[in-house]
């Protein structure tokens, strides 16, 4: 399994050698920083009123959960851009042959690529996670809620990247991969809009399929293993599909 580390290392190196990674990190940090500050300002304005209420939402719910929610939206937009290159660009530049000819399995290639892009998103969420810590200057955080939200964000991004990686194995055109993954992710995001009104079976199934639905409960600080399992299964499904897709050319027809 050393191959995974080598491939992930190359992926991260190439990513950070291009301006893309730095620009994405800078833009994300700027946008989320702005949103964070706006939310803090809002909280300060409504704080006197909240103080009088029973069971009022705390700073973590108002500021931190909102920050992570915005982080998820941004991840939805940038994940397709970062995953589009993973396989399709290598196929286009014909560098995939190097990996296919080396003594590494398809699983190692897929996991290496996945790990590489997740290291990038780890860095992104790491930066996002630092912002709420600043609130310690003037108050307390609900650490459980904060951790559940952060984990949810990382799991959600992991799901985005797994789906993006799979789509990237389907085409040699990175742009096509990006748009397709974006479409797929957005569909999974809003799939529960249909049947939302009634409490029908279809509505419940669609709600359960929604990638955001499971994030919401983690965001509220409810750590349910079913939600975590949903993401892990989602990730595993798309990684296995990717391996099978890459293996298709190598195995006898």
């Amino acid at each position: 399994m050393k191959g995974i580390r080598v491939i992930a290392g190359r992926e991260v190196r190439s990513l950070f050698l291009s301006p893309l990674a730095w620009v994405v990190l800078a833009v994300v940090e700027f946008l989320l920083g702005y949103m964070f500050l706006a939310q803090v300002e809002l909280f300060l304005r409504v704080q006197p009123r909240l103080a009088g209420m029973d069971n009022a939402p705390g700073v973590t719910e108002v500021v931190v959960a909102e920050l992570f929610r915005n982080g998820a939206v941004i991840a939805l937009i940038i994940a397709p851009i970062l995953t589009m290159r993973l396989i399709s660009e290598e196929r286009r530049n014909q560098t995939l042959t190097l990996l296919f000819s080396a003594p590494v399995s398809m699983l190692e290639i897929v996991l290496g690529k996945y790990l590489g892009v997740m290291i990038f998103f780890g860095a992104m969420w790491g930066m996002v996670a630092c912002m709420p810590l600043a609130l310690y200057i003037g108050g307390q955080l609900d650490i459980g809620m904060y951790a559940a939200g952060l984990m949810g964000g990382i799991l959600l991004t992991g799901a985005f990247c797994a789906a993006g990686l799979y789509i990237s194995t389907l085409t040699i055109y990175p742009a096509v991969a990006a748009i397709s993954s974006f479409g797929l992710l957005l569909l999974l995001w809003v799939v529960d809009w249909a049947g939302k009104s009634g409490d029908t079976v279809v509505g419940n199934v669609l709600a359960y399929m929604s990638i955001l639905h499971h994030y919401e409960s983690l965001m509220e600080g409810v750590f349910s293993s079913a939600d975590v399992l949903y993401y892990l299964l989602f990730i595993a499904l798309f990684l296995i599909l990717s391996v099978r897709r890459l293996d298709a050319r190598r195995l006898p027809h």
């Binding site: 191959g3 560098t95 190097l98 003594p103």
Partner: peptide
Amino acid sequence: PEHPPLYRELTVDEYLLFCARLN
């Protein structure tokens, strides 16, 4: 292969070390 599988953004040393580790 017919088209050398090169990562253009890497230096020769980085690339060859990657290939060596991969192998």
